[in-house]
C-alpha cells in the first residue's frame, strides 16, 4: 500500500574525509509513524538523523521531508527546518536564557510571532512537557530530565511535522529517563511523526511502529519491534540485541 511518506530519504551517502559513514541508506517514514533506529556506535545512525535536517550535508542522495526537497540549493533551509524538530543527547539549551526564552527564541525570530504570542505558545509548549512552573528557570537551575523536556518544548512549540530524537536519554541519570520517555509517549499519542535513535529497548517495544537496525553505514534489517527483537534475520542484529539485553 502506498501510504504517503513524510520523510523520504534515498541512497544517502556521507563521507567524512576518508571515512565512509553512510553507504547508501534509504529511509521512508509514514505520517504518524514512530521509527526507532538502533545499531552499534559508529554505525551511522546519528549521522543519518543529522542528514535529514541537513545539520550534516550528505555527500549524495535525495531527501524529501513533507514535500520539501531538503538538498535543493534553492530550498530555504531555515524555513524547512521549522518543520523538523530535533532533540539532542546533550540537550543543547541556551544557558543564558530562561526556559521560556529557550522555547520562544525561534518563535519570535524565525516564525515571526510577537513577544506576547510567542510567550503564550511557549507557555503552552512548556505545559505539554509538564514544566509550566519552570518557565522562568534557567537551564542551570533544572535537572537533566527537565532540561531535555525544555529542549523538546523548544522543538514542539514550532509545530513541526516530524521530530528527530538523537539519543535523547543517553546523558540522563537513570531515574530521570522516565520523565523524558513519558513526554515522548504523549507526543506519540498526539500523532507526531518521530524518528528516534536510542537504546531504550523497552520504549521501542511498547511504542515503536518499526525498528530499523543499522550497522556499518547500512540498514541491515527493519521490521516490527517484536519481529526484530525476537526473530532477527541477521546474525549482526542478533549479536547487537543480545549485547544490549545483557545489560
Amino acid at each position: 500500500m502506498a501510504t504517503l511518506s513524510i520523510v523520504d530519504a534515498r541512497a544517502i551517502h556521507k563521507h567524512f574525509g576518508a571515512l565512509h559513514v553512510l553507504k547508501g541508506v534509504d529511509l521512508k517514514v509514514a505520517e504518524r509513524e514512530l521509527v526507532f533506529v538502533i545499531g552499534p556506535s559508529g554505525s551511522g545512525k546519528s549521522t543519518l538523523l543529522r542528514c535529514l535536517n541537513r545539520l550534516e550535508e550528505p555527500s549524495s542522495g535525495s531527501i524529501v521531508v513533507d514535500g520539501i526537497d531538503m538538498l535543493d540549493p534553492r530550498t530555504d533551509i531555515n524555513h524547512a527546518r521549522q518543520r523538523i524538530g530535533m532533540v539532542f543527547q546533550s540537550f543543547n539549551l541556551y544557558p543564558h536564557m530562561t526556559a521560556l526564552g529557550n522555547v520562544t527564541l525561534a518563535l519570535r525570530k524565525v516564525a515571526g510571532k510577537s513577544r506576547a504570542e510567542a510567550d503564550r505558545l511557549g507557555h503552552a509548549a512548556l505545559e505539554r512537557v509538564g514544566l509550566a512552573d519552570r518557565a522562568e528557570h534557567t537551564p542551570g537551575q533544572l535537572s537533566g530530565g527537565q532540561q531535555q523536556r525544555v529542549a523538546i518544548a523548544r522543538s514542539i512549540a514550532l509545530e513541526p511535522r516530524v521530530m528527530l530524537f538523537d539519543e535523547p536519554t543517553s546523558a540522563l541519570d537513570p531515574e530521570l529517563v522516565g520523565s523524558v520517555l513519558e513526554v515522548m509517549r504523549s507526543l506519540r499519542e498526539s500523532g507526531m511523526t518521530m524518528i528516534v535513535v536510542s537504546h531504550e529497548m523497552g520504549f521501542a517495544r511498547n511504542a515503536a511502529d518499526r525498528v530499523v537496525f543499522m550497522d556499518d553505514g547500512l540498514i541491515v534489517e527493519q521490521g516490527a519491534p517484536a519481529e526484530i527483537f525476537e526473530h532477527p534475520a541477521h546474525d549482526r542484529t542478533r549479536a547487537f540485541i543480545g549485547q544490549i539485553q545483557r545489560h
Binding site: N53, I84, A106, K109
Partner: peptide
Amino acid sequence: PAGQVEAARSTGLGRLQALGYIVLPQ
C-alpha cells in the same frame, strides 16, 4: 559549545542569528 548553535540552526535560526542571539552574548 557547538551543540547550542546546532540546536539553534535546527529550529530554523540562520547562521548570523545563532551568532547574535546565542554565541556572542555568552
